[in-house]
Nucleic acid binder design. Structure first.
Lengths: 341, 341
DNA sequence: CTGTTAGCGCATTCAT
DNA sequence: ATGAATGCGCTAACAG
């Protein structure tokens, strides 16, 4: 069995309480003894066992990061990755680390039909939870709401929907509207807006706002069930640009934009001469790596991740978090893919 | 405080051992009592506390995944992501989850100058470790070798270098040689091979093998310090293709290929008419998403991840793992980016 | 088949 | 300032 606090105490000629005190800086200790203890810890390469420690503190120094099951692996989308990067940027400095909790589609392998993060919480494997969710996922969230009510430390990515808890978000609707406004200002009157299927609700709203605000702008909406259906996109571009006369394309992610660019090359639609492209970019600079460099709304997802982690850690430490709902600004970065008509 | 095994026992009118037996299926229990216990567990939404359990078992049901610090975030490279996907694909079914352990560049924030995974191991936060490393990282690995010697459950990605432990790998040198052979067979006699800086050793070896095997093939090597230096690549392509007369480009990752494609478009070098491109792809199908579709050597990194996780879990369970070093085959997928000369 | 008990490693009283 | 003793929640050995 590994070395325990007893071994250290014995070698240093003190009691385990003294060792514990030094470990936790919880009281003053005679410098002579302290030195002996430190020597013993070095000697044994002693590290306190987390189970013993956790049993009394009931804290694991881990937080969970949960992505509701999606079409694809969570590691597929820049959005998720930037979030993870942001989170990871703050954790090590607070002596925390993260467990990835991901839903399996195959429920039969699980004991209960509950979101998997609940187990982690009840078993005390994590001290708090960050969860990223596409809008409607919360609807089926009795469990989630209950945790919120109990004041469990949690921050979610997305619009606020409950009095408790914390959240970070970017104004999805706002920057999509902004995309359309910018195109309109540059003389575009017929554009195609591409979006992921789960954002349908927002699209309806955007359509209605634009309908009254910019009556002379025609917007087509294309909801993709799966971002990577190149074939689907190809036909859409052929139709909307080639036949329908759209002069601009709005793309929801850089991944989609990339495919769009390939499609335009294939169809010999030059960008921006034949068709303009605006993208959303979740990682700064992504649009600049394409050719032509793509104008994009930058959503600072990495900062949202850091922000979320930061808030979470503060609540876990018991600090009052004054600003429990923070919005992140998006910013248009103009590059070479949009043309003035 | 949360509900404990005692609460369940009390409500079911049995002793805690009986509850424990049911929890672990560790012995037969009278069906009547078993039913009562199950009812009580339901009632309280009881989940066993991991600290209590861990204290006696000394197992956390978590494994660590460690990426040595690199230029970029671990979440930047398809390679890492596919590895994670592969690992994650097997964990939930074995009731395991993973903690991401990543090195911070800022050592001052850490108590000791040891690889961070060591703490996790000593604190018993993880039951085993998967670690992905670019070749030479192991060199400074006294800690790593020591763990290997002690028989700690570990699997690493890369060539075997120690008698103990387990590893999975793809023949990096082999498929790079294969790339050159394929190009040669298609009539190419002067090609540029691009590679990440940390692979310099392999490059030297490849150069010498090709030198004797295919004396009429001239290979230029370009070592990138950072894959994303578009400017650097641009000048290289201009030089090697435009002036030096290379007819083909070998790219080490799809990320680099993407940039290469943009550069060729920018320089009006048509692919494959003006210059051929072969890539490595770590995620199946990646090359097909580009335009033109890029021929690539597929390295099944996702399978390597699953394989690694599988081996690791088996050793943790105490099973003998017969095949403790498995090599994965790469496969050339021909698409539209290579031309016969 | 079941209850009692010891002990896992540690932080934390409570005495001193 | 320090040691002894208690208990955190659980499993497993033991006794019945």
């Amino acid at each position: 069995m590994a070395v325990s606090i007893h071994d250290v105490a014995r070698r240093a000629g003190v009691s385990i309480s003294t060792v514990s005190r030094i470990l936790n800086n919880s009281a003053n200790v005679n410098e002579k003894k302290a030195e002996a203890v430190r020597e013993a810890m070095e000697y044994y390469h002693y590290e306190p066992n987390q189970f013993g420690r956790g049993l009394v503190k009931q804290k694991s120094n881990m937080i969970g990061v949960y992505f509701p099951s999606q079409y694809e692996s969570i590691f597929e989308l820049t959005y998720n990755l930037e979030l993870l990067k942001g989170i990871e940027r703050v954790l090590p400095y607070q002596d925390y680390s993260m467990v990835l909790i991901n839903e399996t589609t195959e429920y039969e392998h699980r004991r209960q039909a509950q979101p998997r993060y609940l187990e982690f919480i009840q078993q005390k494997k994590i001290d708090g939870l960050i969860l990223s969710a596409a809008g409607d996922t919360f609807t089926r969230g009795d469990v989630f709401s209950k945790l919120l009510e109990e004041g469990y430390p949690m921050v979610y990515i997305g619009k606020r929907f409950h009095q408790n808890g914390m959240n970070v978000y970017a104004q999805f609707e706002q920057y999509h509207l902004q995309m359309l406004r910018e195109l309109h200002a540059r003389g575009h009157r017929k554009v195609l807006m591409i979006e992921g299927g789960y954002h349908k609700i927002y699209m309806d709203h955007i359509a209605s706002v634009i309908g009254t605000e910019l009556p002379d702008l025609e917007v087509r909406f294309l909801l993709l069930e799966n971002n990577h259906f190149r074939r689907h996109l190809l036909k859409a571009v052929e139709h909307y640009v080639g036949e329908d006369g759209c002069t601009a394309l709005c793309s929801p992610t850089i991944e989609t934009t990339r495919i769009l660019l390939g499609i335009c090359a294939q169809l010999s639609y030059r960008i921006p001469e034949r068709v303009s492209v605006v993208s959303v970019e979740h990682r700064q600079g992504d649009g600049a790596l394409e050719y032509p460099a793509v104008s994009a709304f930058y959503v600072p997802v990495i900062d949202m991740g850091s922000g979320a982690a930061d808030m979470l850690l503060r609540t876990i430490r018991g600090e009052k978090v004054e600003d429990d709902s923070v919005e992140y600004e998006t910013k248009l970065i103009e590059r070479d893919s949009v043309r003035n008509l």
